[in-house]
Each structure stands twice: as structure tokens, then as C-alpha cells.
Amino acid sequence: MTDKKTNRRDFLFTATYAVGAVGVGATIWPMIDQMNPDASVKALASTEVDVSAVNPGKTITVLWRGKPVFIRRRTQDEIAEARAVKLEELKHPETDEDRAKNPEWLVMLGVCTHLGCVPLDQKGDYNGWFCPCHGSHYDISGRIRKGPAPTNMEIPKYEFVNTNTIKIG
């Protein structure tokens, strides 16, 4: 084999390919990015909910960003049950104290972390939620206890605007 020196032509080829690749990438990117959430979708960022009519032991479901959010007013028994669970028993260890800042109110995305179905209230082996699609069982803190879901149901960003109003998002 002859030892080829890099000449002017090799440089021109490489430079042309590089500029061409950047050009192709810059052309394709808008075609890909147009599929991401648009400005009007992003604008629907927060929702305020009046929870004054929710009695202990009841759950309401509200729509936020096209997804259901469960707001459950838990009974004293349920809070005690959720807080008694040891972290070692959990697939995705999280304390109930971290999930429900105000223990009476559990606010979480009502979306199963397996494949996105809406779990059913007060069903399943752990007295919390049960997903009918592929059989995931959640406890009264919305933590995954049994079934294919990998993580606990997600807690969205929320705050109490006043005692009766929760702002989600």
C-alpha cells in the first residue's frame, strides 16, 4: 500500500460532506420538531379546582393537560394505613409524607405508569387503585404494589391557593 498524503481534493470532499450533512440535518429537524407539543397545547398549563364539596373518603377526577388528575380526600384510617407501610415493602420506595404534603389530600395523575390507562378507585388488593388494563395494584397513597407498572402514580406540581382551592400545574 502506498502512503497517501491528504491532498486538497480530500479536504474539499470532507468539507462538502460535512456542510451537506449540516444542511440535511437543519432541513429535517423542523419536519421532526413540528410533531412536538405546539404553543396552544403548552398554553393549557394550569387548572384551578374547587374542592370544598369533596367529603372524606371520596375522590374527584379533573382534567389537566388532557390527563385525569385524582384528588382524594382521605379518611384518618386511610392516612394511618398509608403511613404505616414500610419502605422495604415498596417496589418504588416513597414515603406517604413525601407524596401528600397535606395528608388529608392526595393529588396525583390518574394515569397508570404501565401503559397509561386510568386506574379504578377503591379497587385492587391494596385498597387503593386497580388498573383494569394489565392488572397493576396501587395502595391508598397511589404507590405501585403489584403488577407490571414500574413506578408510583405521578404527583403533579400543585398548591393550595386557599383552603378550598387547589391549583394544578
Partner: peptide
């Protein structure tokens, strides 16, 4: 998934 949906859930997009 967000890219496929064009939002935060299955919707019009």
C-alpha cells in the same frame, strides 16, 4: 411519547 402525541395525552394532534 410526547412527540408521538403532539401533547401530554392522546388528543387532536
Amino acid at each position: 411519547v410526547t412527540w408521538l402525541w403532539g401533547g401530554y395525552s392522546v388528543d387532536n394532534p
